[in-house]
């Protein structure tokens, strides 16, 4: 498991970004791989969100002989060990996978930004305490911790998303803290303070919007990380048995892999393409929002 802390290093210090969204989009759209990622992401989203309306085979229905290879029946990608349609599983599982990824990422961002913002803005003992908490989560292997949490509260979709969120916010917190440390002594922040603005307003309404670009990148990437995380948990058997997800498909079909390479390969490819699309878009955003690179 890798967390998306890479952006700590990719993100150059920024001047107050006055560049309008249009300039960012111009930058982004001139980046071929980013556009490719965006298109790929759109395809994945259409596949998972519109797919169930078009392809109406229930993912839990036993439709054909178990372990039928792709292209040998009307079920294009073959069937799994229960004779369920793999394609239907991919289409319906995508929604769950993306939902888990997105909600876990949201939680990651909420916790990470809150802790990072408070630590970076107030400094002193607050910073010290919150950074110790961050370190605490950093020295523990996050997958093990998530496994413990999922087992504690049983493997439901919500609990899985919460467990992933709880163990993966540290890099976001560090990133946010760094941004806040840098921005809190900026002139416009001082100006706000001198006119008597409340801390709460300064943190959330003044500094945060200016710290947003790297956080947006981080948020995008953490969706990908969360999807990989879900797959890892499912592979270890920690998935919700009542909902299909890509990770669960890999975990469930893995024992049958010798007779059905398709059962684990297709969901693996789906995860791979989705995370790849997210990474490409995240990278593109990073470049587009990063003024230093823009000069090049």
């Amino acid at each position: 498991m890798i967390d998306s802390s890479l952006d700590n290093f990719n993100t150059e210090p920024m001047e107050k970004p006055a560049s309008p969204a249009r300039q960012t989009w111009k930058m982004f759209s001139s980046n071929q791989s980013a556009v490719a990622g965006l298109i790929l992401l759109a395809i994945v989203l259409i596949f998972s969100l519109v797919g169930p309306l078009v392809y109406q085979v229930a993912p839990t229905e036993m439709v054909w002989m178990p372990l039928t290879p792709p292209l040998e029946s009307e079920y294009l990608l073959g069937t799994d060990y229960l004779g369920r349609d793999i394609l239907a599983g991919l289409i319906n599982g995508g929604r769950i996978t993306i939902a888990i990824g997105a909600s876990a990422a949201l939680l990651t961002i909420v916790i990470g930004v809150t802790i990072g913002a408070l630590a970076g803005y107030y400094g002193g003992w607050v910073d010290n305490l919150l950074m110790r908490v961050t370190e605490f989560f950093q020295v523990l292997p996050n997958l093990l911790l998530a496994m413990v949490v999922v087992m504690l509260f049983s493997a439901t979709l919500t609990n899985i998303a919460i467990a992933i969120g709880i163990v993966s916010w540290t890099s976001t917190a560090r990133l946010t803290r760094a941004e806040f440390l840098r921005l809190r002594s900026m002139d416009y922040v001082r100006a706000e303070r001198s006119i008597g603005a409340k801390n709460r307003r300064i943190i959330w309404a003044v500094i945060l919007p200016n710290a947003a670009p790297p956080l947006i990148v981080s948020a995008a990437l953490s969706i990908g990380t969360a999807i990989l995380f879900e797959a890892g948990l499912a592979f270890l058997g920690l998935s919700d048995p009542n909902n299909m997800s890509w990770g669960r498909m890999i975990g469930d079909n893995r024992p049958y892999i010798l007779d059905s390479w398709w059962g684990v390969t297709f969901p693996g490819i789906a995860i791979f393409l989705t995370v790849l699309a997210i990474s490409l878009v995240g990278d593109g955003l990073n470049d587009a929002l990063n003024p230093k690179l823009r000069k090049r």
């Binding site: 990989l228 890892g232 592979f235 890999i250 995860i271 791979f272 393409l273 790849l276």
Partner: peptide, 9 residues
């Protein structure tokens, strides 16, 4: 690619 594929996969 290495980033995007599940390691166990």
């Amino acid at each position: 690619a290495g980033f995007s594929a599940p390691v166990f996969w």
